[in-house]
């Protein structure tokens, strides 16, 4: 896509966000994995609490039931490549999204790495991405 929004200068304060991060310190709840496949996105991410973490991890990796958002750590992530985030790039290669006029309601769009990199197409495939924690 040649009309991608350009990233601004990155600072610690205004770091782009990874919309499919593991449950780690600072992660916030972005969505719930649903039975039919795909994600129910929260209109606003929720800060997770100790109670949430305890309950969410009691029966297995929380990432299989939830999507989390955290800072995009760029070169600190093995999914980061020359073209940016390879996760959204490969998702776009493998999935063909119907280009619905309305994007999913999402509270992190202005800071979302995937949206910055791929524009609206990212939002069309975003609800299909599930983070599988192999740890």
């Amino acid at each position: 896509m040649n009309s991608r929004p350009k990233n601004g200068p990155l600072t610690t304060e205004s770091r782009p966000l990874c919309p499919s991060a593991p449950l780690r310190e600072g992660s916030q709840l972005l969505g719930l994995v649903r039975q039919e496949g795909g994600i129910r996105l929260l209109a606003e991410p929720l800060p997770v609490t100790a109670d949430f973490v305890e309950a969410a991890t009691a029966t297995g990796p929380a990432e299989e039931r939830f999507r989390f958002v955290n800072k995009c750590v760029e070169k600190g992530c093995t999914k980061w490549g020359a073209g940016g985030c390879s996760v959204v790039a490969s998702a776009l290669e493998r999935l063909q999204a119907t280009q619905a006029a309305i994007l999913p309601s999402c509270g992190i769009r202005p800071s979302c790495r995937w949206f910055m990199q791929e524009g609206a197409s990212a939002c069309h495939i975003c609800p299909q991405v599930t983070y599988l924690n192999y740890e």
Binding site: C77, K79, A91, Q128, V129, T130, N133
Partner: peptide
């Protein structure tokens, strides 16, 4: 399809 990310990588 549902894309799965290797959590170990992150």
């Amino acid at each position: 399809k549902v894309i799965r990310i290797d959590g170990g990588d992150w």
